[in-house]
């Protein structure tokens, strides 16, 4: 993001991005069906048949080449993370032929965490119609659904940019939120990592809590109840973070959204950056809990 001129607004950082004029090509336009945050298998299959969706596979390239969901484009997460400035994200989307109104469904083979990080990035730069596939690629394959091996290419599109700061937080924003009663910081890492060290005043919702046996996310009523148990109001503002690049917390971001919490932000640089900036953290050293692990 360093190549962008930054100006602050009340939500955090604002990017001034110089864009080429939008010239939306006709052939790239897909009739816009609005997707839910999580897309089920049947819906995706129908959309694929009708050629009304861009499927994005975020696994490593070699895995993609071994087989992927029909029509899927390959976008290894590492490619996106190597430069996740809004400009670069737009460029990636254009290369995948994603136009403003293209319905996009993202999948991975890592319980949805990698897909979430990509889907969040698309949302961040202003793509409204993006969804996570409810199952992983392995699940899809195990269900005996169709796969293909050919490498898919798409005519370039020209996506507009409209950065959605309401879903983004940086370190400074998180630091200010720490002592704000109306803001809840959620650590999405596993329990023992959380106990070891975390951002002061953050609460722990491990990513392992939000999936069910057959879907990357539980049903919304269960997720809602989990939040209620924790006294988290659906009107609260929530900021999620995890260990390093915002994958686990990306998944929790989507979980909270499906649970009906409207104001959720992701701190994509997460605890790795927080620590490197020397920000305060809470460490719990009064117990030897790691010795309970059976591994």
């Amino acid at each position: 993001m360093s190549d962008l001129t930054k100006t602050k607004n009340k939500n955090g950082i604002k990017y001034d991005v110089k864009l080429k004029k939008n010239t939306i090509k006709k052939e790239n336009t897909m009739s816009p069906s609005t997707l839910n945050l999580v897309c089920n298998v049947d819906t995706l299959r129908t959309l694929i048949k009708k050629n009304k969706v861009r499927v994005v596979d975020v696994r490593k390239k070699d895995e993609y080449l071994k087989g992927h969901i029909p029509t899927a484009a390959s976008l290894p997460l590492a490619d996106l993370l190597s430069d996740d400035s809004p400009e670069s994200i737009i460029k990636i989307m254009n290369n995948l032929g994603i136009a403003d109104n293209t319905p996009v469904v993202v999948y991975d083979d890592t319980f949805g965490a990698l897909a979430s990080r990509v889907a969040w990035s698309f949302k961040f730069v202003g793509h409204k119609n993006v969804s996570l596939l409810e199952v992983t690629y392995s699940d899809w394959k195990n269900m005996g659904l169709e796969i293909e091996k050919k490498s898919n290419k798409f005519p370039k599109s020209s996506h507009s940019i409209d950065i959605d700061y309401s879903i983004y937080a940086d370190a400074e924003y998180v630091e200010n939120a720490r002592n704000d009663k109306n803001k809840v910081i959620i650590d999405s890492r596993e329990r023992l990592n959380f106990l070891t060290e975390h951002i002061p005043n953050s609460k722990n919702i491990p990513y392992t809590m939000i999936r069910s046996e057959d879907s990357i996310l539980r049903n919304p009523s269960e997720l809602k109840r989990f939040m209620e148990n924790r006294g988290i109001d659906s009107n609260s503002e929530i900021i999620t973070y995890c260990g390093s690049v915002g994958t686990l917390s990306g998944l929790v971001f989507f979980a909270l959204k499906t649970a009906g919490i409207s104001n959720v932000k992701l701190y994509p640089k997460s605890f790795k950056e927080w620590k490197s900036l020397g920000k305060p953290k809470i460490e719990f050293k009064d117990a030897t809990y790691w010795d309970l692990s059976a591994e």
Partner: peptide, 20 residues
């Protein structure tokens, strides 16, 4: 924490569960 623990009184214990 992703593991369970058999106690000497034949219980199975889950540790470090958030009170909520």
């Amino acid at each position: 924490i992703g593991s369970a623990h058999v106690s000497t009184r034949q219980n199975i214990q889950l540790h470090w569960v958030q009170l909520e």
